[in-house]
Design a protein around this nucleic acid. Structure first.
Length: 724
DNA sequence: GACCTGCTGCGGTCTG
């Protein structure tokens, strides 16, 4: 039995917890981790005891009497480190092992103490590890030479992302300073689509194994439809009333996909509650709400057993911060990915035997269709596959600077060798590295002194700035304050002016004064207000979701989870598309012919749609078009007889797009805003980054090649009455 | 039709 394999102090801890039994993932992890020195990915749903699954066996195995930090825990969030610190520290009391938090908000005294006497367990963020390499390079081997285990929490949040490549590089650099030139990695993960990708993340795919607990809870799901008001602003009142009715006596999380809507929902539900004498526990939780307010909300939710409450939130409540269990999860309009839907659903019914409720509201027909498609794919066990970039030149550039700073200069051939040996950059050939290093010297970010490369004059500004430690960009924000208390932070949009109202932290405020130089906004409470406008990029919907949407349109499958209004909307959409007589959703695509225009419904991924739009811009003879991603459609001003020619031409352009990308970057450098370190690359590499991470031209070429357009002429609109 | 994430070193002032 797994329990008997644990060290005696750990067994005592388990007994003191009065757990009835170990969870399946814990039992499996104990047996495997104690038996081998392999890497493991522990995958199971939120709150299934993954932290203990990793730490019970690791603490049983590692000899902490030897000096040096023996276990390093990496987390994507400071909040998660603070959460886990309490749990791990409690466990470590049984072993007399020291646990140290190491992040930007952690005590400097504690950090100093650890450097003087390296020992035990350290909890850290990737950015703090980066900072350590750059600012205290001697501390890295001093602390970590004896490292035996690295635990990566929420590892799925790193997969397929720039931050993940950054972390992978840091782990590779860390490995190089350890005495054994290796440590074992244990990744903790939610259910994900592609475990091969998770295995590759450790840098040693062949000795990484996945322990998977697929068990999920029964879920009561219902779809509810309320048509969006014509002016398109905010939410229909009928929806809010229904939402209130469905949630007023439960513990609820509401996910409306944007910070602005989260505020609207929290304020309006509170107003309804005020009128009918309901409870007053209405909150909003997202990145613009002040940290202390957010912590209060988290604390309330976690320690409140009986009272109903309602939190309107964004993805800030998707990752594993412990807020206890909720009765109901509400998604307003389609979630942007199935991966995200899984995380949200996992927040409910977490106690044994508890039933989870999922309410899916839609306000537009296409959003209903997407939501239903996502939910069905979720039921089939599908999760979007992740693609790790194979040409992360921008991250290589960042890490090259970091390594030169770490070593206070190093010969070029050594730098190239280190980058070549780094697990994050194995796909980048030496010639490309040489080209990038040459460009860095040209712009004075690096400088050559004899055989040595050192940080150049311009580079000093970069590596010494506070912004160097992360690989993601953030917008400047203004602090919102009332009577000396900070309520949150919002970006400066045109709406932010004196005497305008805004919604924040589930309250209405009137702007009294905007202090531009100090980046502060002074507000007072008000009674009615507009929601704040937040700026952002765009979501990317997977091709599988779009194909499922088309499949739903051409089938007659009944869906009992839909309420009457949703049934009606689906029926109408199906009738609209019945005219095409489509029989399959892989290659056939509807094309509506109306007068001088064609509407091509591509039902394909956002990235392929983006690529098609880019290709349309490349044409010598331009075809005017409008592209709409929610309906995945292109309205082309083109005669139907010319469509085959157009598609053939686009296909040719898709195969040779580089020249056009170079031109586009020259005209609009903002195209690369999504990649923080790309702007200093040679332009050829900028184009490669853009091509790989923002577009999908190979996918677009295949789409065009296999596309079978099915045309149908729209009958002329017959006016209801003759014009008066 | 988006969301999220993190952060050093130094000089100054205050406290015990």
């Amino acid at each position: 039995m797994s329990f008997d394999l644990l060290a005696e102090p750990i067994r005592r801890y388990v007994r003191d917890q009065r757990w009835e039994s170990l969870r399946p993932i814990q039992a499996a992890a104990i047996q495997h981790i104690l038996a081998t020195d392999d890497n493991y990915i522990l995958a199971s749903r939120t709150a299934s005891g993954k932290t203990e699954a990793a730490f019970l066996p690791i603490l049983s195995k590692v000899d902490f009497r030897q000096p040096g930090v023996r276990v390093l825990y990496l987390s994507p969030l400071i909040a998660l480190i603070n959460d886990q610190f309490h749990r791990v520290e409690q466990l470590c009391k049984y072993l007399d092992v020291k646990v140290t938090k190491w992040h930007g908000e952690a005590s400097r005294t504690e950090k100093k103490k650890l450097v003087q006497q390296p020992e035990g367990i350290v909890l850290i963020t990737p950015e703090s590890l980066e900072a350590m390499f750059v600012n205290a390079p001697y501390s890295v081997p001093a602390l970590f030479a004896q490292l035996q285990y690295v635990v990566i929490d929420e590892i799925h949040s790193f997969l397929g992302t720039d931050r993940g490549i950054h972390l992978k590089s840091l782990l590779s650099r860390l490995e190089a300073v350890t005495a054994a030139r290796s440590f074992a990695i244990v990744g903790l993960s939610a259910t994900i689509g592609d475990y091969a990708e998770a295995k590759r993340f450790t840098g040693h795919e062949e000795r990484t194994k996945v322990l998977l607990d697929r068990a999920s809870k029964d879920m009561l799901t219902s779809f509810r439809y309320f048509s969006a008001e014509d002016d398109g602003s905010d939410l229909p009142l009928a929806l809010l009333k229904d939402l209130y009715k469905q949630t007023s006596t439960s513990k609820v999380l509401i996910f409306p996909n944007s910070r602005g809507l989260a505020e609207v929902i929290a304020v309006k539900l509170r107003q309804i509650a005020d009128r009918v004498g309901g409870h007053d526990k209405y909150f909003s939780h997202h990145s613009s709400v002040d940290k202390e307010v957010r912590e209060y909300v988290e604390h309330f939710a976690k320690h409140n057993q009986r009272q109903p409450f309602c939190i309107a939130c964004t993805s800030t409540l998707e990752l594993g911060i412990d807020i206890g269990s909720v009765d109901k999860v509400v998604q307003v309009d389609a979630a942007h990915s199935i991966a995200s839907l899984i995380q949200r659903v996992g927040r409910s019914g977490r106690r044994e035997g508890e039933q989870s409720h999922l309410l899916l509201y839609a306000t537009k027909p296409w959003s209903l269709l997407q939501s239903l498609a996502c939910w069905l794919l979720y039921g089939e066990g599908f999760v979007e596959p992740l693609r790790t970039a194979t040409q992360p030149y921008d991250l290589l550039l960042h890490q090259a600077l970091s390594i030169v700073k770490q070593l206070s200069g190093c010969p070029e051939n050594e730098l190239v060798a280190r980058l070549r040996a780094n697990a994050a950059f194995t796909t980048i050939p030496a010639e490309d590295i040489a080209e990038i290093l040459a460009e860095l010297q040209r712009i004075n970010w690096l400088e050559r002194i004899g055989p040595e490369l050192i940080i150049g004059v311009e580079g000093e500004y970069t590596v010494n700035s506070r912004d160097f430690y992360s690989v993601f960009k953030t917008e400047p924000a203004f602090k919102v304050q009332h009577a000396g208390k900070t309520i949150g932070e919002i970006p400066l949009t045109p709406q932010v002016r004196e005497n305008e109202n805004l919604l924040l932290a589930a309250r209405i405020w009137k702007i009294k004064y905007v202090d531009e130089p100090a980046k502060k906004i002074e507000v007072v409470p008000a009674h009615d207000g507009k929601r704040p406008i937040f700026l952002g990029g765009g979501g990317a919907v997977d091709v599988k979701v779009r194909e499922k949407m088309l499949q739903l349109l051409i089938s007659n499958s009944p869906h009992s989870e839909l309420d009457a209004a949703s049934q009606q909307e689906l029926r109408e959409l199906r009738q609209e598309f019945a005219r095409f007589g489509l029989v399959e959703a892989r290659h056939e695509r509807p094309v509506l012919v109306k007068e001088a225009k064609l509407v091509l419904y591509t039902f394909t991924s956002t990235k392929i749609n983006r690529s098609l739009a880019f290709l349309l811009n490349c044409l010598d003879v331009t075809v005017p078009y409008e592209y709409d991603d929610p309906t995945s459609s292109f309205t082309l001003t083109l005669s139907a007889v010319l469509l085959p020619d157009l598609l053939a031409q686009l296909q040719l352009y898709a195969l040779d797009v580089e020249g056009h990308l170079l031109t586009a970057i020259g005209e609009n450098p903002g195209l690369l805003d999504f990649a923080k370190w790309a702007a200093s690359l040679p332009v050829r590499h900028q184009a490669a980054v853009l091509q790989e991470r923002y577009f999908d031209f190979a996918g677009a070429a295949t789409f065009l090649q296999t596309l079978r357009p099915v045309l149908s002429v729209q009958e002329a609109d017959i006016p209801q009455e003759s014009a008066r």
